[in-house]
Computed example of a mutant assay.
Amino acid sequence: MNTATMSITTDASADKIIWKQIEVSESYLVCSMYEEATSIAISILKHLQDDSSGVAMQDMWESAAMVLVQSLNQLGRAPDILNQLRSYFTSVKTIPSQVLLTGVCFQIAEGSISGIREFLEEFLNGWNLGDGQYVAVIAEAKKECGSKYNKHLVLGIDEYLEVVEVYAVTLLATLLKDVDLAISWVENASLPEENRQGLRRRLNSMHCSKSAKFSQVSSPTSDNAAYSVNEQNVCEGSHKSLNGKDSDNRKYGSKIVPRLAERIEPCFWCFRAINLKFGNTKFVISSGKIILSCLFLFIYYVYRRKQATIKRMVRTQVTAMKRALVDLWQLAFSYEVNPLAAVQPIAAAANQGR
Rank of each mutant, 00 (worst) to 15 (best):
N188H: 02
E121K: 01
Q344V: 11
R323Y: 02
E110G: 09
P266A: 04
R77F: 06
A348I: 06
E110F: 08
A139N: 10
E36S: 13
N204C: 02
I18M: 14
N83D: 14
M206Q: 08
I17E: 13
T309R: 12
F268S: 15
S238Q: 10
A324K: 05
D158Y: 02
D59T: 03
Q232D: 12
I183S: 02
A349T: 12
P258C: 11
L48V: 01
M321R: 03
M6S: 15
V318W: 03
K282D: 15
E187F: 06
I157R: 01
G156V: 04
S334H: 10
C294Y: 06
L124H: 08
I285M: 15
A139I: 03
V179S: 01
A109Y: 06
D158N: 09
L175D: 03
M6P: 08
A332T: 12
K151N: 04
I113D: 06
D178S: 14
V137K: 09
E121H: 06
C208F: 08
A109R: 11
E35D: 13
S247T: 12
E231T: 08
V314K: 05
V217S: 11
V92Q: 00
Q58I: 00
L120N: 00
N243A: 11
Q98P: 03
S190F: 00
V229A: 09
A348S: 14
S39M: 11
W127A: 12
D59A: 01
Q70D: 03
F283C: 09
G126S: 08
P192Q: 05
T316K: 15
S254R: 12
R323V: 04
V326L: 06
S27A: 14
I42E: 13
E193M: 02
A261T: 12
S112I: 11
R250Y: 08
